[in-house]
Design a protein around this nucleic acid. Structure first.
Lengths: 106, 106
DNA sequence: TGATGTCGTTCGGTATGCCGAACAAATTCG
DNA sequence: CGAATTTGTTCGGCATACCGAACGACATCA
């Protein structure tokens, strides 16, 4: 019954050898709530909590929240793409963004 | 009485010429709630809502939550773009890459 | 053995995130 | 101008995020 978010939190917490109490303390939460995040069905924490938890666990909030749907080697290609994008001029980048923006308007 | 978060949302929303209703629709929210985020004292939205709002406004969630200024700098916009790109299907991503590859041999 | 401590689990209550619907203001258009 | 439409605002209420406190499970150590 746990969620991907819960699994990630538990895994990272144990990796850092923290108890529920310790993680709770460092994230201004209660341990019962950390437990809920790890074990309940579909937790919907606030941005604030996720931010603090991510900081303590030394990952990005994005990592905790997204489903990691790409394979590692896809990720490499994506990173390369992003690097190239960043070398472009601002007006050109804007054009690319526009293209992406309009992508799924039927 | 508005918060920094509220100011940023309002600013970016107007910049994109969206009404409360339109932004609400695109973020699976109600317009009354978007209004609350913009105008209430100390809003504490869920990570889910902030993620969706950030995506539509084309900034990062961290920018909305932590940054002091109301206007995102280039890096924030780039990062938001990259996140949006990563949500696309692999074939679609490939097309975008092709476009970028063909960019500078005019 | 049983006292002490640490860890995870459960649960009742409170605050508030978030909603829909009604209302007010502004804007468009005849 | 007035009617229609679009925008922003207010408000009552449901659902749930988040809490503290009590509980059981397990290890440690006298």
């Amino acid at each position: 019954m746990p969620s991907p978010l819960g699994d990630k939190i538990r895994m990272l917490r144990k990796q850092k050898k923290l108890s529920l109490d310790q993680l709770a303390e460092r994230t201004d939460s209660s341990k019962s709530y950390i437990w809920e995040l790890e074990n309940k069905d579909d937790p919907k924490p606030s941005a604030e909590k996720i931010g603090k938890i991510a900081a303590v666990l030394e990952v990005t909030a994005e990592f905790l929240l997204t489903e990691a749907t790409t394979t590692p080697d896809e990720a490499v290609v994506d990173e390369a793409f992003f690097r190239k994008y960043k070398t472009m001029s601002e007006p050109d980048k804007k054009k690319i963004r526009k293209i992406l923006d309009a992508w799924d308007d039927e």
